[in-house]
């Protein structure tokens, strides 16, 4: 992401800077436009191009050496044996084949898929509706909810917090389950069927994009809703025809982040499930498995797995872009 941010200016500036140059080489058919072709007027354009280059050069070099070079090298490495201190040997698609055949890789992709779907449903779409519902509340409640969503909890702190909350012996969730709800002790993270769900739950409250939705919703002029109200639109229709369309660009952007984020889920599941993605690997995501490959010094295999994951993530992002571009009005 940092790459695209750094380079947007270049893309914007480049055509602007190039335009005077074009004019210079191709004079207009009517004998050339008068004032604009004078050398004096081109100077700013040229200087701008030099400055643009100078300003973006560090970022470009940084991106090249730390962003693209390692990425390309990773790709190259995946076709070798990735030996550490001896010359690498070209192995072709061997790593890809091995990773393809590994049942645990398939399992980790299934886990990641479920995790992604759960995570996007629970922490991405639900906050949209919650945010819309909240906007119907009084301003005081809205403010409190925004505060809650904005709580500056650090990732590590909340992870430690949730490890405690999920503790099967003395955790808060267990207490709620047994003492408040009167249920038998719940397995939470110790059940293969539940573990992914519980891993996603904390995201609803603390890592969800709810705050961004609310901020966007608040920027919609009240008149839009009033106009619809006068025409007799109810809550759902207002949401469908006004709130959601207005949220659309932000949803589109955040969805990409969410897809990338959840397909690369690693830290939280690792800490919460004790690195193995237990029980039975039910919570071992692709990146967690990739990390295990690294620990076994299987660098080539890990890189190949990384390439598979990259392709899938990229495909999802492309599909997402397609889907959101299918807009009747644009």
């Amino acid at each position: 992401m940092a790459a695209s941010q750094q380079h947007t200016p270049v893309e914007e500036e480049a055509p602007a800077a190039a335009r005077p140059g074009e004019r210079e080489t191709a004079p207009g058919p009517a004998g050339g436009p008068p004032a604009s072709t004078k050398p004096g007027t081109q100077k700013p354009g040229r200087r701008r191009r030099v400055e643009t280059t100078l300003f973006t050069l560090p970022a470009f070099l940084f991106q090249l050496s730390w962003g693209w070079y390692p990425m390309i090298m990773a790709f190259v490495l995946s076709f070798t044996d990735a030996a550490l201190r001896r010359p690498v040997q070209f192995t072709g698609l061997e790593s890809y084949q091995r990773i393809w055949d590994d049942p645990l890789v398939a399992q980790s992709f299934r886990v990641t898929a479920v995790y992604t779907v759960l995570s996007i449903t629970l922490t991405f779409f639900i906050p949209i509706f919650v945010a819309i519902l909240l906007m119907e509340m009084s301003r005081r409640h809205i403010r409190w909810m925004m505060l809650l969503w904005f709580l500056p909890l650090s990732g590590v702190a909340s992870t430690v917090l949730f490890r405690y909350m999920f503790n099967a012996q003395y955790g808060l969730f267990q207490w709620v389950a047994t003492k408040v709800l009167g249920l038998p002790p719940q397995p939470f993270l110790n059940s293969a069927d539940q573990v992914l769900f519980w891993l996603v739950v904390p995201g609803i409250l603390f890592f969800g994009p709810g705050l961004i939705y609310m901020a966007t919703l608040q920027s919609i002029p009240a008149s839009y809703f009033e106009a619809a109200e006068i025409e007799g639109a109810g809550f759902w229709r207002k949401m469908w025809t006004i709130s959601l369309p207005r949220l659309r660009p932000i949803i589109s952007m955040l969805l990409i982040f969410a897809i990338i984020g959840s397909t690369q889920a690693f830290e939280f599941p690792t800490i919460m499930t004790g690195a193995e993605g237990s029980p039975g690997g039910a919570a071992r995501t692709v990146v967690m498995y990739l990390f295990q490959l690294l620990q076994q010094l299987r660098y080539a295999d890990a890189t190949a797995l990384g390439v598979y994951l990259f392709v899938i993530t990229m495909t999802l992002v492309v599909i997402q872009r397609r889907f959101f571009r299918e807009d009747p009005d644009t």
Binding site: P221, S223, Y224, E226, A228, I242, P245, R246, D327, D329
Partner: peptide, 10 residues
């Protein structure tokens, strides 16, 4: 309305 309030994406 002042800002027309036309339904977006229609």
């Amino acid at each position: 309305f002042q800002d027309y309030a036309l339904y977006p994406s229609m």
